[in-house]
Design a protein around this nucleic acid. Structure first.
Lengths: 362, 362
DNA sequence: TGCATAGATGAAAGCGCTGTCAATTGCCCT
DNA sequence: AGGGCAATTGACAGCGCTTTCATCTATGCA
C-alpha cells in the first residue's frame, strides 16, 4: 500500500462572531413577556388544555420570539422525572451494538425518552463507573449489556429503585429483568452444526475474549468433547479486539498449528470475513476446501462471496423488547412483567460458506 | 439461504425482588449521618483539600454506607455547569460515526465530560429537534455533523452561548468553529485518480444521497466534465441507505446501463465492498477487468481480497480536534481558537483494487 | 337574584445541590 | 498575653422548574 496525493486545502478564517453567554431565557422571562405567571407558561407547554386558548396563543408567540428552550435539568429536579434511560454498552464501534442502540433509540425516542449511552470498553471497572455516572443523572431505567457486573455495580443497580434490564445473555440470577440468549448454547450449536456436517478437525478463532466470546468458546469445547475431539491445537485466540485483519491473522495462526483443519467457527463475523479473505488470498476454496461459520449474522454475511453461514442473534429484538418492557414499567402500572427472564434464542443461517464433508476427502 | 434449527431455551422465572423506590439518599442525609453540614459534604466530594482529614474520612464512610450518589441534576442546576457535551450524528449504525463517537468519548470521558448523543436519521427536521432537545440539557458545547442545519437550528445554536463545532465538512459560513474536509474536493480527487490511471468510462455508485454524498458526486461530475465525459449513464444512485447488498445491486445496475465500464468510484466503502463481491460473483476480475475505489477507508479495505483502494477521511482526527478545541474553550480562557475553520484534508490510499489502464484494452 | 361548581390562574414552597459570605477555631508573631 | 491571619466550617439564598393549594372568575341552577 502506498499513500498518495495528500490534498489539504487553504484555511480561510471566516468572520469572527463571538456571541458569549448572556443569561438564557427562562420560564419567567416568557411569563412576563406574555403577561402571565410562570406556572401558566409551564402548563401551556406541558398540559395545553388546562390553559385558555387566548393565553396559550400569547405564550406560544412569546416562546418563539424569545427562542425559549425549557431547562430540562430544572424540570427534572422539580418533577423527579428525567425522561432519561441509562444504557451501558461495552463498545461503540462494534457494529453489533449499533443495531442494539438503534433499536433503543427507535423505541425510546418517539416515547419521549432520551437515551444516555456510556461505554465500558469491555472492562468491569469502567462499567461500574459508567453505571454510577448514569445513576447520578437519575435515569428512569437502566439497560446494561451482559450479566457480569461487579458486586458493587450490582448493589448500585439494585438500590436505584428503577427497572434494570440485563441484556444479550441469560443470567442465573438476574438483578431485575433479563433478556438475551444463551451464548454457551449458541457456541455449542454452531460447533454441533459443523460436526453434524461430518467435520471433526474444527478450528475456533476467538478475539477480545470478553465474557460472551468465552461462553461461546465454552460451547464449542463442550460440543467438541462430546465428539471426543481434543481442542488444544484447534483454538486460536487473543485478547486483542476483533478486526477483519485480525481474523485473517488468527485464522492463519490456527492453520499453522492445524494444517488439516476442515472447518472453522469464528466467534464473530468480523473474524469470519477476515478468515474468508485470507482463504481467498491463499487460494483455499470456501466451502470446497474449508467450511466457515461466523457469529451474529451481520449484514455483510449475506452479501459476501461466498455468502457466510452465521449464527443469527436477535440483537435488535433484544433491545426492542427491553425498551418496551421498560416503557411498560415506567409509565404503566409500575409492576414488572410476568417473565423476569426472556430467552430470545438464536438461529443458524446456512449459506454458501459451509457444506457437508465430502465422503472421501475433506 | 435456509434458516435452520431454532434453539430457544426454557424460561425459568428467577426469584422476584421488587425493590421499588424509597427516597434516594441525598447530600443532607449523608451530612446528618456524618454529623456535619451539607456544604461540608459537598466540599468533601468536590474539593477534598478544603476539608480536614478527620471530617473527610467520616464523610467518606457515610457516603459508602448510605450508597450515596450525587444528584447531577441538582448539581448542574446549582452550579450552572453540567459537564455535558451535546453531539448530533446522522446515524448510529454507520460505522463512519462509530469512529467519530469513539474519538469524542476518548477525549471527553477522561476530562470529566459526558457525551450526549442524539441521531438525526439524516433528516433536517430530526436534526433540529435533536439540537433543541440537547440544548434543553444545557450542554457546555455542541458538536454537530455536517453543515446543513435548518435556519432555526442555526439560530438556536448561535443563541446558545456555547461553543458550537460543525464537523466532517467545510462550511463557507460556519456557525462558530468548523473542522472537516472538502467533500467536493475528495470526490473530485477520487475521480481524478481514476482518470489519471487512464480510464474514461468511470461509473459512480451512490446511495442515501445525504449532503456529503451529493458533494462527492459533484466532485465526480466536475472531474468527468473536465475530461469531456458525459456522466448521465455512468451514475447509479438511490436514496436507500447504503448496505453491502445495495452496493452489489447498484453496481449491477450501473453495469447494465454501461457494459463497457472500466472503473467505478463508490461513494462509500460499504458500496465498494458490495460491488467487489458482485464482481467476484460474476467472475469480473478486480483490478484486471475493473478498477474500484471506495470512500472513507474503513478497516476492511485493507483486509479484503483484493484490498480496496479508498479515500481515507480523518474521522477520528476530526472528532479529536473538535473535542480538544471544545475543552480548551470550555475550561480554559473561554476564547475561541485562532483558526475558526480547520481543513484536515484527505488521502487516497492506493491498494490492489485499482491499477493503470492497460495500453491496449481496458 | 343568589349560591354552588367547574374552570382558569396565580402564589408559595420546595427538588438537591452549590456559591457566597460570615463565623469559628487554632496558631503564629510581636 | 493579645492581635492578626489562615484554615475550617456553617448559614443562607438561590439555580429554573413543578407541585400543591388557594384564589378568582364565569356559568348553571334553584
Amino acid at each position: 500500500m502506498l499513500r498518495k496525493t495528500c490534498w489539504q486545502g487553504m484555511t480561510q478564517v471566516p468572520k469572527n462572531s463571538q456571541g458569549r453567554s448572556r443569561r438564557r431565557t427562562t420560564l419567567s422571562d416568557v411569563a412576563s413577556h406574555a403577561g402571565v405567571s410562570a406556572v401558566t407558561v409551564s402548563r401551556a407547554l406541558r398540559q395545553p388544555d388546562m390553559v385558555s386558548l387566548d393565553l396559550r396563543e400569547r405564550i406560544d408567540v412569546s416562546v418563539r420570539e424569545l427562542g425559549y428552550i425549557p431547562n430540562q435539568l430544572a424540570s427534572a429536579l422539580a418533577s423527579a422525572r428525567t425522561g432519561t434511560i441509562g444504557v451501558v454498552v461495552p463498545s461503540l464501534t462494534n457494529i453489533v451494538f449499533a443495531d442494539y442502540l438503534k433499536a433503543l433509540h427507535d423505541i425510546f425516542q418517539p416515547a419521549g425518552f432520551q437515551v444516555l449511552v456510556l461505554n465500558s470498553r469491555y472492562a468491569l471497572v469502567d462499567e461500574e463507573r459508567a453505571i454510577s455516572t448514569l445513576l447520578g443523572q437519575h435515569p428512569e431505567a437502566m439497560i446494561v449489556a451482559g450479566i457480569d457486573q461487579t458486586d458493587h455495580a450490582r448493589k448500585l443497580l439494585e438500590n436505584a429503585g428503577i427497572p434494570v434490564v440485563q441484556t444479550m445473555e441469560l443470567a442465573d440470577d438476574p438483578i431485575d429483568i433479563n433478556i438475551g440468549l444463551s451464548q454457551v448454547d449458541a457456541g455449542y450449536a454452531a460447533t454441533r452444526y459443523l460436526l453434524d456436517l461430518g467435520f471433526r478437525r474444527i478450528g475456533h478463532v476467538a478475539a477480545r475474549l470478553e465474557p460472551r466470546a468465552r461462553r461461546r468458546m465454552e460451547g464449542y469445547r463442550r460440543a467438541m468433547e462430546e465428539f471426543g475431539q481434543d481442542t488444544n491445537l484447534l483454538v486460536a485466540s487473543t485478547r486483542r479486539p476483533s478486526t477483519f485483519a485480525l481474523g485473517a491473522e488468527m485464522f492463519a495462526e490456527g492453520l499453522a498449528s492445524t494444517p488439516d483443519m476442515e472447518a472453522v467457527f469464528c466467534c464473530n463475523d468480523d473474524l469470519a470475513l477476515g478468515a474468508l479473505f485470507e482463504c481467498q488470498r491463499r487460494g483455499i476454496r470456501v466451502p470446497e476446501d474449508l467450511s466457515i461459520i461466523g457469529f451474529n449474522d451481520l449484514e455483510f454475511c449475506a452479501s459476501s462471496y461466498p455468502a457466510l453461514t452465521s449464527v443469527s442473534t436477535p440483537r435488535y429484538e433484544i433491545a426492542r423488547r427491553a425498551a418496551e418492557i421498560v416503557l411498560d414499567v415506567v409509565r404503566g402500572s409500575g409492576n414488572r412483567p410476568e417473565e423476569r427472564r426472556i430467552d430470545l434464542g438464536f438461529t443458524i443461517v446456512e449459506r454458501e460458506s459451509t457444506r457437508p464433508k465430502r465422503p472421501g476427502g475433506t
